[in-house]
């Protein structure tokens, strides 16, 4: 039973389906994280209180464990699939030209944009989640001033540029990944596939522009 399930789970088709599903779940995370971050525009109290409410809920550990599992599955499978794909053509072409009717810039750079996002993710956790800790009191409750950690970090123009660069890579990654996930799962329709491709691009723009606006906003706050 277990060995037979493993046989199907390790097939090329199912591995791609797991990539697609974890990718779509991560798109959901991107959206919810973006909405949470937008509280920064309302000022330190709204953002810090939101962050405090999140991290003091005991369920956060369960949520973080699930999120980490999704991330690690997506990254681990990506590494395995890319390795297998390279192995499938040991002798490369002397000349290789795209038809111009199939692959896009986004589709052909998925492993590279993925690596940029991975590097970003690690730095992002170090800089913010495990970054400098300041304490502030809002409405009589003592909590971490994560707002200050973020605004301080984005006082460096290099930090702002690196962040926006990574968000562009993220947008490119999801612009292909979004519809591609549906294709891998097996959803194809003469009308809705076009719509999904379009929706993927709209989502990419929302994510890139939405996330890139925050460091600019923080930079404009000026130093304290």
């Amino acid at each position: 039973m277990a060995s037979s399930m493993l046989k199907y789970a390790t097939s090329s088709v199912v591995k791609k389906q797991v990539m697609g599903i974890t990718g779509l779940l991560l798109c959901g995370f991107l959206l919810s994280h973006l909405i949470g971050n937008c509280l920064m525009y309302l000022g330190p109290e709204a953002f810090n209180t939101y962050a405090h409410t999140l991290v003091t809920n005991p369920l956060i550990y369960v949520a973080e464990a699930i999120l980490a599992t999704i991330f690690l599955t997506h990254i681990g499978l990506a590494a395995q699939l890319t390795y297998e794909n390279n192995k499938a053509r040991p002798q490369k072409y002397y000349v290789k030209q795209k038809t111009g009717r199939g692959a896009t810039f986004a589709s052909s750079t998925m492993p590279y944009t993925g690596l940029i996002i991975l590097a970003f993710l690690i730095l992002h956790l170090i800089q913010f989640k495990f970054g400098p800790e300041y304490v502030i009191t809002h409405s009589g409750v003592e909590m971490r001033d994560i707002y200050k950690t973020v605004v301080d970090y984005f006082q460096s123009p290099i930090a702002v540029i690196w962040y926006i660069f990574c968000m562009i890579a993220l947008g490119i990654h999801v612009s292909h990944g979004f519809w591609s996930a549906f294709q891998s799962i097996g959803f194809w329709h003469p009308k809705y596939t076009c719509l999904l491709k379009c929706l993927g691009k709209v989502f990419a723009v929302i994510v890139t522009v939405g996330y890139s606006a925050l460091p600019i906003f923080c930079y404009l706050q000026g130093g304290n």
């Binding site: 499938a88 052909s108 591609s180």
Partner: peptide, 20 residues
Amino acid sequence: VSKMDELGFGNCTNEAECEA
């Protein structure tokens, strides 16, 4: 699908160069 995997073909990344 199982035979295709066994023979060492790569995995699909939905780029549609095949269709083109």
